[in-house]
Computed example of a mutant assay.
Amino acid sequence: MVADQKSKSDISFAGTFASSAFAACFAEICTIPLDTAKVRLQLQKKAASGDGVALPKYRGMLGTVSTIAREEGLTALWKGIVPGLHRQCLFGGLRIGLYEPVKNFYVGSDFVGDVPLSKKILAGLTTGALAITIANPTDLVKVRLQAEGKLPPGVPRRYSGALNAYSTIIRQEGFGALWTGIGPNIARNAIINAAELASYDQVKQTILKIPGFTDNVVTHLFAGLGAGFFAVCIGSPVDVVKSRMMGDSAYKSTLDCFIKTLKNDGPFAFYKGFIPNFGRLGSWNVIMFLTLEQAKKFVRSIESS
C-alpha cells in the first residue's frame, strides 16, 4: 500500500499475511477493552422500571470501562481476547494480505498509475466478505464472551473459555450456529474493510503527493486515523445489528433485528457506542497500520537479502 505502482513487486503473500496477522493481533491486544465497552453499550436495551425507564447501567466509553473493571475486575476488559486473536489471525491476515492481489486483479496486470478509488473499494469489499466468512465462528465466540457481565452468586457462566464456547455452541445449537449473524457480519466487515483499506490507501496516496511528506510514521498516523473515522461512520449501524444478533438469539433475521432495534430503541440506537467504537477503531487502525508498515519493512528486508 506504499504506492500503487510498487504494489505488484512488493513482498510475498505469505510475508504480507504474516505481517497483517501480527499487526492485527497486536492492535487487538491494545484496544480490546474499548471493544468490550462498545459491545456492552450496543447490547444494552432500554430497561423498564416501575416509575418509567431505568437509568442505563453503562454510560459512555470511560464510564462503561470503569463499571466493568469495578464490578468484574480489570481482566474482564480483556474478555474474548483468545477468540479475538483467533479472529485477527484469520480475518486480519486474509483481508489485508489479499487486498493488494485482489486490487491488482481488478485493475489488470498491465495497469500503470494510480489505482482508481472505486477499484480500491471493490477490493476491500471482496477481501472483507471472504475473510469474515471464514472467521465468523471466532467473532461469534468473542461477542458471546464479551457480552456476559457480572452474574448473581451461584449462577454458572455459560462458557468457561474460548474453546469451551466453541464446543458448547456446536453441542447445544449445532455446527451451523457458529455462523450466526453471518449476514450482518459480512455486510459490516465488507463495508468496514473497504472503508479502512481504501481510505488508508487513498489518504496515504494523497498525503504522499504533498511536498514535504514522505512514506513515514507521520503519514501512516494520519492515514490510519482517516481509515478509522470512515470505517466507524459507515459501519456503525451494521455493527450494532451484528452485535445484537450474536449476543441475543431472540432475533429471527437481520431484518427482524433491524426493525426491532429501530422500533424499541429508536434510530440513534444504531450509533450506540459510537465514541467507544471510534476510540476502538481509530486507535486500532493507527496501531495496526503503524505496526503493519514496520512489519512489512522487516519482512521485505528478509526476503530481499
Results as ranks from 00 to 15, higher is better:
A47S: 07
G93Q: 06
M61F: 06
A131H: 00
N185R: 10
I182L: 09
Q5R: 05
V155E: 14
T67H: 14
P116S: 07
P267V: 14
A195H: 06
L262C: 13
A135L: 01
R188E: 10
G84L: 02
F230S: 12
T206D: 11
I207A: 13
R188I: 04
G228Y: 02
A69P: 06
I96A: 03
D4L: 03
L125A: 10
I302F: 04
C233A: 15
T36Q: 01
C25R: 06
A23N: 13
S236D: 11
Q5N: 12
P211C: 12
Q202V: 02
K260M: 08
K260Y: 07
T254P: 05
P267M: 13
G73N: 00
L62G: 10
G247I: 05
L77I: 07
Y99F: 14
A76E: 12
K6T: 14
K272G: 13
G63L: 10
I11E: 09
A177Q: 07
V143H: 10
K297W: 00
G84C: 06
V217M: 13
S118A: 15
V155A: 11
G228R: 07
L98F: 04
L255N: 08
L98C: 03
K57W: 06
A24R: 01
T168D: 06
Q44K: 11
L90S: 03
A195Q: 04
T67C: 08
I275F: 12
L62Q: 12
G235D: 02
G15W: 05
R244Q: 13
N104A: 10
W179R: 06
G228K: 00
T214W: 12
F13I: 09
R95A: 05
L163I: 11
M61R: 04
F13H: 13
A129Q: 09
A231K: 10
Q5K: 07
D256T: 07
V102G: 01
E72L: 05
G174M: 10
G124K: 06
N285Y: 01
C30Q: 10
L34H: 09
T133L: 02
A194W: 00
G154N: 12
G52P: 09
I287Y: 11
I11V: 14
K119R: 14
N193W: 00
G93Y: 05
Q205D: 13
W179T: 03
S253V: 08
R59E: 15
K103W: 04
G174S: 07
A231E: 06
Y58R: 00
Y159S: 03
S9F: 05
Q294F: 09
